[in-house]
Design a binder for these strands. Structure first.
Lengths: 98, 98
DNA sequence: CAATTATGTATAAAATTCTGAAATTAAGGT
DNA sequence: ACCTTAATTTCAGAATTTTATACATAATTG
């Protein structure tokens, strides 16, 4: 028999990734980081008027999914877009969405 | 300000599509249809040993998401893969999954 | 210790899945 | 035409899982 074109594991990962990004707050975070290059957690949660813990959660999700990366500088942690992850996702969406 | 690369609506649709496909039973259905060209509902639920209504439900989801299409012939409804939807999704996954 | 960030937990809200019953559609026999 | 049967769809519900949010607490750095 022919093996499937669809690897369940990869599929699950990709779905999980898109699902994670498809959230208003997380899109807002990504949008800000397209303009400001990098921001620390305080800047982010103040700009979005959300709880600090909430921002930290969202950031962690985006980092786990490979969209963001972080760098610590003293007490602050700066988050920034990782490579061309966003562009790749944009391409992915265009491929998927007929 | 620069507009976002990520259209929330499209993103949601793509996520929803991948999420829909990323289900063991639905992957199994797609895999069967890669080999058998077309199958009716009875063939499918018997092959997968699931309830008939459950199969119908999964088939409807896949059809709604644009992966399958159906054609009625007498009492039976045959389902088949729609165009190159599966190939496109496979590409999409490769783009997304770093 | 103060500032910043991360993590844990609990509760609520939303989405999925499965099942069984009822409704729809089509074909065949009388 | 009528009745029956087969195939499929659709609906309603309950059970499970996932996700979001808020609050509290922990950890790290200076």
């Amino acid at each position: 028999m022919a093996q499937s074109k669809l690897d369940p594991k990869k599929l699950e990962e990709a779905a999980s990734k898109l699902r994670a990004i498809a959230h208003p707050m997380r899109i807002a975070i990504i949008d800000m980081l397209e303009e400001k290059e990098q921001m620390n957690v305080t800047e982010i949660y103040e700009a979005l008027k959300i709880e600090q813990a909430s921002a930290s959660h969202h950031l962690n999700i985006l980092k786990t999914k490979g969209v963001l990366d972080s760098r610590r500088s003293g007490k602050k942690t700066f988050y920034y877009l990782k490579g061309d992850a966003v562009s790749q996702i944009a391409e992915c969406i265009n491929k998927c969405h007929n």
